[in-house]
Design a binder for these strands. Sequence first.
DNA 1: TCACGGTGATGTAACGATTTAGCATGTCGG
DNA 2: CCGACATGCTAAATCGTTACATCACCGTGA
Lengths: 341, 341
Amino acid sequence: MADKRITLADVAERAGLSVSAASLVLNDRPGTRISPAARERVRAAAQELGYRPNLAARTLITSRSATIGVVSDSVTTRPWASDLILGALREAHSRAHILHIAETGTEIATATEALDSLLDRSVDGIIFATSRARELELPDRAIPVPFVMLNATSAAGDASVLPDEFEAGRGIARALAEAGIRERIVVLGRDIGAPHDWVDTLTVSRRTAGIAQTVDEYDMQLSVQLPLSAWEPEPGYEAISELIDGGETFDAIIAMNDRLAFGAYQAMLERGLRVGKDVSVVSFDDDEFAQFVRPGLTTAALPYETMGRLAAELILTGATQPQEHLIPMPIKYRGSIRELG
Amino acid sequence: MADKRITLADVAERAGLSVSAASLVLNDRPGTRISPAARERVRAAAQELGYRPNLAARTLITSRSATIGVVSDSVTTRPWASDLILGALREAHSRAHILHIAETGTEIATATEALDSLLDRSVDGIIFATSRARELELPDRAIPVPFVMLNATSAAGDASVLPDEFEAGRGIARALAEAGIRERIVVLGRDIGAPHDWVDTLTVSRRTAGIAQTVDEYDMQLSVQLPLSAWEPEPGYEAISELIDGGETFDAIIAMNDRLAFGAYQAMLERGLRVGKDVSVVSFDDDEFAQFVRPGLTTAALPYETMGRLAAELILTGATQPQEHLIPMPIKYRGSIRELG
DNA sequence: TCACGGTGATGTAACGATTTAGCATGTCGG
DNA sequence: CCGACATGCTAAATCGTTACATCACCGTGA
């Protein structure tokens, strides 16, 4: 297995030219003059020898590495948000780049460490990603390469890619309104209109603001609001169970996320209420299971893959000026809204 | 922002020593003699200047990069298997390495491309990961660095890390047997004992073999077997619905995976059968939702994070001799098995 | 006095590319 | 026939590190 690597020198020798000439040809540098015949010989030699440039050598002199660094909190590689990475991966791949992934704990100390680790490797740009959209505290230090916040913002207002939660809020409320459901509506997970004191303000405040606007617009009546501190199936189940067992009746639920909705489904199913017939349910996120529950859950999908793609694209095209890029959250219409017959 | 990078030469100069000496000190090379005083000066200088070695330069000469490459099929970053990456990430991190991630389509052509892309970057080792355990066809070419198959095997029988499906099959069947449930058992998703003609043989054949062995051992009676081609909630729902509507009764379901089990849950719930009371359900995978359904699903967990960790560890310790490493699948006991009162 | 061995370093050559300045040619206008 | 200029290519420097051979110095024993 002693097949040592082919270097540019090998290619040059076989083509009967200097290393410099070979370099010029293979990089297709404009404005240099090498005869077509020589060009051809170099390319043929490279091809025949199976030449592949040593990226470390190239990086050393150009200080570019065809690599994008990703700093993500510990959960970006977790189920829900892994499409962020996937999107970035694909965009990078299509531009002959690769992803360097560094994990960090939740906060700044390890973020600094991860950042250093990436900079040591001369990455061409950095994506700071979080799994739940929030403001991320960046290391207090100049970052010498372009960077983008992905599903996050920074205090300094750098370039960031976010889901368009506001429009999603509007769209989800409108989906009910246009199905003719304008009253006897339960909001699960949040009190629309309460002040924003939430941890992940970013997502929540915009989502609720969108709902609130549409509720006004269509003069919809929110009969019950159930703020919850954890947006998980269990609290959703508990809250809706209590509500029903307490004698409250309602026509629709706007759940602040799918996981709450799943809990609500279960509570209603156990009590003989049929989703999509007796009660309409709409929600946010498009969790994997939203398409598997019965009936399928109508929900505004987090466009993670698209977001990841855009983040990589912004870096690779150098478009990292401070700006919020809002990505539409497409509404997946499934069977959870009652159709008026 | 014109703060150019600190190089080793800067450190050496400040310490009043040669670059070589500084290198020797900072790398703590054994067998070289530098006076304690000099060592101290070098370290102090490095510290004060905030020196960080340029990894590209180091890689160029040592051809090691403190980087592990991951070649994964398009879905390893998808929900279920992302813990594979997470585990590898953490282990790599704890050893000052970083992960280079290259995605590939499902087969060999792009795998070759991804592989090249990683080798160009002088990775120290490669993890070939798949999201559903199966045999992966490797490029027909010597791979000049250590590598490990993660959740996969190769035809050549290289080092691989797999979940211990056989023991999990035994454990899951035993969980029923020891709860006193030995007959009127439905197997959902697969005909135990049918020949293995499945796509992802690896997982399935061992899982079923484990079940079969324990069934024999405890003389359990499998009253119905429902082979299904897609292990998703919907087919699970359909199959169990038909079964119940056809008048069949049963005490337990062994689902071949959680997704089938979720479908079964729904079918039973709609028909008034109570999981964990009327019917016991056991399963495999420990999908995210297994802990959220009511009652929680007892299931053998795919130990993805541990597997990812081990894969990285094998590479970093050089233990990549051909061997199958089987990682136990812990059984998560939740409420889906009827307790005998 | 001189060879010898240990101590504490240093100098130089890699590593494999890119980049820039410049050196031969040949051609062409005057 | 000469200078200017384009053409086609090469030599050498450079990036920041590590690897390897070597060197100056000093004390010591023969």
